[in-house]
Nucleic acid binder design. Structure first.
Lengths: 151, 151
DNA sequence: AGAAGTCATTGAGAATGTCAATGATTGACT
DNA sequence: AGTCAATCATTGACATTCTCAATGACTTCT
C-alpha cells in the first residue's frame, strides 16, 4: 500500500544478473521452505538428507560424508542425534571393524517417507509458476554444476 | 581409472531428484568458484556483494541489509572492513542524521570492476557446457524463486 | 512537547565449515 | 610373521555465518 513495495528485496543490477548470487538466494529460499515443511516432524533439511541416504544407501559414515559433502566430524553429531531418536542405527561393517554402517530403523524409514512427501509438496508450491519441463531442465543444469569436477 | 570413479560425489536417488538439494550444492559450488576468482583481490563473494551495492546503489546501511538479506549487524562489520581498506565510505544522509550512506570510493569502484570481470569469466567457465539461452532461462527461474514472497 | 518508531551499533548464542590429532584397525610390503 | 603407512570414527578447536535482543541517537506522529 506504500510507495515502494515491490522494490523491497531487490539487490543491484550486477548482482541481479549474477548467476551465483541468484543461485545463493534461491537456495536459501528453498531451504527455508523445506525446513518449514518438515519442522513439525522434528527434522531440518540437513537431518533429512542424512536420513535419506541412510534409508536409500546405508553406507559407512565416511561414504555418507562424501555423499553429502560434509566433514566426517559433522556426520558423527548428526548420526548421534538421529540414532538417539531411534531413527537410525550404527551397524558393524562385516568386512571392516573400523567402519560403521549407518542404516535407518523402521521408524526412520516411516519418518523419511512422511518428510519426503511434505518436501515434495512444498517444492511443488514453490516452483508452481513454472512448468514441470522447465523445472526438470533446471534440475539437469544444476546437476551438472553440482557434480562438476573442479580443479 | 578405478572401478567406481564417477560415483564419487553422488548422494542418493531421492536427493538427486530434489531441486532444493541440487540448488544448495550448485550454489556452494558457484560460491567456491567465485571466491577463488577474486581471492587475490582480497575479496570474497560476500564482500564483493557489499561493494557491488555500494557502487551501484549507495544506499543506507539498513537498505543495504535488505538488499543483501543480511542482518544489519553484519553490515556493520562488512562495511567496517571495506572502509578500513579505503574501498568505501560512510556518508551522512542529508535527510536523516541516524542513517549512514555507504558509497564506494574511486578505489572501490576500480576494484569492483576488476572483481566483476573475474567473476564473469569464472562463471562463463563454470556454465560453459550450457548455452547462453539455457543459462538465461535458469536465471529467470532463479530470480522468481529468489524474490518470491513467502507467507 | 511527548510517545513511539527507526537507525547503526554492540554483544551474545546457535549452526555450520574446516582442520588437526587420536586410537583402533586394515592393507601393503618384505 | 612383522613392520609401516593408510583409513575410519571420534574429539576438539577455531573461523564464519545467522539470528536475536538491547542500547543511544535521532526522527516522525500526534
Amino acid at each position: 500500500m506504500d510507495t515502494d513495495e515491490g522494490a523491497r528485496a531487490y539487490s543491484s543490477p550486477t548482482l541481479d544478473a549474477d548467476t551465483s548470487f541468484l543461485l545463493a538466494r534461491a537456495s536459501a529460499m528453498a531451504s527455508a521452505v523445506g525446513n518449514r515443511a518438515i519442522a513439525d516432524l522434528g527434522l531440518k533439511v540437513r537431518t533429512y538428507s542424512v536420513l535419506a541416504v541412510a534409508v536409500e544407501v546405508a553406507p559407512s559414515q565416511r561414504e555418507l560424508a562424501e555423499r553429502l559433502r560434509l566433514d566426517p566430524s559433522q556426520i558423527v553429531a548428526l548420526v548421534d542425534e538421529l540414532e538417539t531418536r531411534g531413527l537410525l542405527e550404527r551397524r558393524q561393517d562385516p568386512t571392516d571393524r573400523r567402519a560403521r554402517i549407518v542404516a535407518a530403523t523402521p521408524a526412520g524409514v516411516t519418518l523419511f517417507e512422511q518428510a519426503r512427501a511434505r518436501i515434495e509438496d512444498a517444492q511443488r508450491d514453490l516452483w508452481a509458476p513454472h512448468s514441470a519441463a522447465e523445472v526438470e531442465a533446471l534440475r539437469a543444469l544444476l546437476r551438472r554444476v553440482a557434480y562438476a569436477d573442479l580443479p
